[in-house]
């Protein structure tokens, strides 16, 4: 009997080691361990054994069963693993083939840069104001200290609708409109982005372009505040290493007035074609709000001061992306737009 059990174990081991699929393993299991299996047959014959032999053989039979079961389990796992490996191998794809394409949309570069500028000032507590693109002469010029026949009007050749109404030449009228609405409330901290129009069309001028105006009015706003604010802006927009310089300039609606240059973003200030070898690039105009503008808008210039600045989004966009032709921005060539 013992011999028989050992034989069963030996044969089962042999068969199991040769089996190479799950079906065979199952057959083997049925053949040895099933209700009609060999091991069960042996156990059935136990009745013929003596009381002394029975527990010994019983224990041996159980050991044989559990050994077979262990091997079965092991082989099952092995075969499953092998199958998986074969399956994975057969499922290999070319991962370098391009993926299923989805259409590529893009924001216009001017719109991207405008948002970027907005975000910088939103972060400094400014809100965004808007104003009409078709303006009265009063808001576009007169309230900004540019009476009729002022020579500085030559700086901005305008498109007129009638003698009193024109396409705004700058976003500055939004300053006046905002202050009129807010006065005497303080503080005023706004930016005003938008389209502006000047009667100029050549390689470096577009009859329509985009500006961002900024205005801060409060009880004690200084030129130092203006400088510090624009320094922060320039560093965020063009990188922390960018230097600024302030040049005296003239705008009828600010006094003192300045133009701000940044160290050339192309050459780092060494001098190149883009900066006309000066190392500097002009990017915006600014100044302390002229007392007459404050007064017209309802503030007492003895009590409050303010600063204002204005920049062209096209200029900044061109610098940021290295675009060398202004006209590209308004041609809307889809191959151009796909680059941003």
């Amino acid at each position: 009997m013992q011999e028989k059990l050992k034989n069963i174990l030996y044969e089962a081991q042999q068969e199991l080691s040769q089996a190479d699929n799950l079906e065979e393993l199952n057959d083997i299991r049925v053949r040895y361990l099933g209700k009609k299996g060999q091991l069960t047959g042996v156990l059935r014959g136990m009745g013929a054994l003596s009381a002394g032999e029975r527990p010994i053989i019983g224990q041996l039979a159980n050991e044989v069963r559990s050994q077979i079961e262990d091997i079965l389990e092991l082989r099952t796992a092995e075969i499953k693993e092998k199958r998986k490996i074969v399956q994975l191998e057969s499922e290999r794809i070319d991962v370098t083939l391009p993926g299923t394409s989805s259409m590529m949309g893009r924001r216009h570069p001017l719109s991207i840069v405008q948002e970027e500028i907005e975000e910088i000032f939103l972060g400094m507590g400014y809100t965004i104001e808007e104003g009409p693109e078709i303006e009265t002469d009063f808001y576009n010029f007169e309230a900004l200290n540019l009476p009729k026949d002022h020579p500085a009007r030559d700086m901005q050749d305008s498109f007129y609708i009638n003698p009193e109404v024109l396409l705004r030449t700058q976003t500055s009228p939004v300053q006046v409109r905002t202050m009129e609405r807010t006065a005497p409330g303080l503080p005023v901290r706004i930016i005003a982005p938008g389209r502006v129009y000047r009667r100029d069309d050549d390689a470096t001028h577009s009859p329509m372009f985009n500006q961002v105006e900024g205005l801060v009015v409060d009880r004690r706003v200084t030129l130092a505040d203006l400088k510090g604010t624009l320094q922060v802006f320039v560093e965020k927009m063009f990188g922390p290493a960018t230097k600024t310089r302030f040049r005296t300039s003239f705008f009828p609606f600010t006094e003192p007035s300045a133009e701000v240059d940044i160290s050339c973003v192309m050459c780092g200030g060494q001098g190149c074609r883009v900066c006309s070898h000066s190392g500097w690039l002009e990017i915006l105009g600014c100044g302390m709000v002229h007392p007459r503008v404050l007064e017209v808008s309802g503030y007492n210039p003895e009590e409050v001061t303010g600063f204002a600045f204005g920049m062209g989004i096209e200029r900044i966009t061109m610098l940021k992306y290295g675009i060398d032709d202004l006209r590209l921005l308004f041609e809307n060539d889809l191959r151009f737009l796909a680059q941003f």
Binding site: R189, D225, F246, E255
Partner: peptide
């Protein structure tokens, strides 16, 4: 203020400090 600009430009805009506006905090949104 015209004279203040004269003072500022001869003193040098670039010698004027860089500060940020103080006062009431406003929410930029």
């Amino acid at each position: 203020v015209d004279l203040i600009e004269e003072v500022a430009r001869l003193y040098g805009y670039n010698r004027v400090k860089n500060t940020l506006p103080t006062g009431v905090i406003t929410q930029g949104a």
